[in-house]
Design a protein around this nucleic acid. Structure first.
Length: 216
DNA sequence: GACCAGGCACATC
DNA sequence: GATGTGCATGGT
């Protein structure tokens, strides 16, 4: 498995080069994007982020303090806007209450307790928490998403129904913990998923196609 | 006009 | 613990 995961990474890196994932200018913007992209295409998230910037709402204090209607209106293009407004507000209030609104201060907490703390927030599940940990706090945790599961199961490496923790453990056990590699590996999976893995027919041209099992 | 997208919480069995 | 459902917009 270690060799397989290394080969997947090498092939994707050779095809795409550096992804410099995640898009976002600040740790706070990364965290907001992580909530907004839940079950949502990134193109819709970009519109929401642009709206937040234009409305000067892209800071913990502004976001927590603004009228709820203003926040909902700004993030509307990303879908689920009522739920996500509540989730963003909860995250901002937590950040303000415990860290004076500073992502850097939050990131200084030990990784294990910090992950539990994020998971305890309403609307922050495993993927969103790990997005924030990896890309906003610099913690080397592997981010699992729908693309990760789809690609690995299509290659016969895991069961399609494998859970989040099981899939994450696979990467933690077989890929050396390196912040840059973990960031890039997930970015490469996202790009591959978007480009080649949405339907079976699109496997053609995928840098991973030569690794597919014979019967697929 | 159907179908899907980088989840998550909640209800029900 | 497994399974089903609501949440909402924009692209294909």
């Amino acid at each position: 498995m270690r060799e397989t995961l290394a080969e997947i990474y090498a092939r994707l890196a050779a095809h795409y080069g550096e992804t410099h994932w995640w898009p976002g200018e600040t740790p706070f913007e990364v965290s907001v994007g992580a909530v907004l992209t839940q079950n949502t295409a990134w193109s819709n998230v970009e519109k929401a982020i642009a709206n937040l910037k234009a409305a000067r709402l892209l800071s913990p204090r502004a976001m927590a303090g603004c009228a709820n209607g203003d926040l909902e209106a700004a993030i509307r293009p990303s879908g689920y806007y009522r739920q996500k407004a509540i989730r963003l507000r909860g995250f901002c209030e937590h950040l303000l209450t415990h860290y004076g609104g500073s992502m850097a201060r939050m990131a200084r907490r030990p990784a294990g307790p910090l992950r539990e703390e994020l998971l305890a927030l309403h609307g922050i599940g495993p993927e969103t928490a790990d997005d924030i940990l990896l890309y906003a706090c610099g913690v080397p945790v592997f981010v699992v998403d729908a693309y990760t599961r789809r690609i690995l199961s299509r290659h016969g490496l895991v069961e399609e129904k494998i859970g989040y923790d099981g899939l994450q453990a696979l990467f933690h056990d077989h890929v050396d913990r390196d912040l840059h590699v973990y960031k890039e590996y997930h970015g490469l999976i996202v790009w591959t998923g978007k480009d080649f893995c949405r339907t079976k027919a699109r496997c053609e041209g995928c840098p991973l196609a030569p690794l597919l099992p014979a019967d697929s």
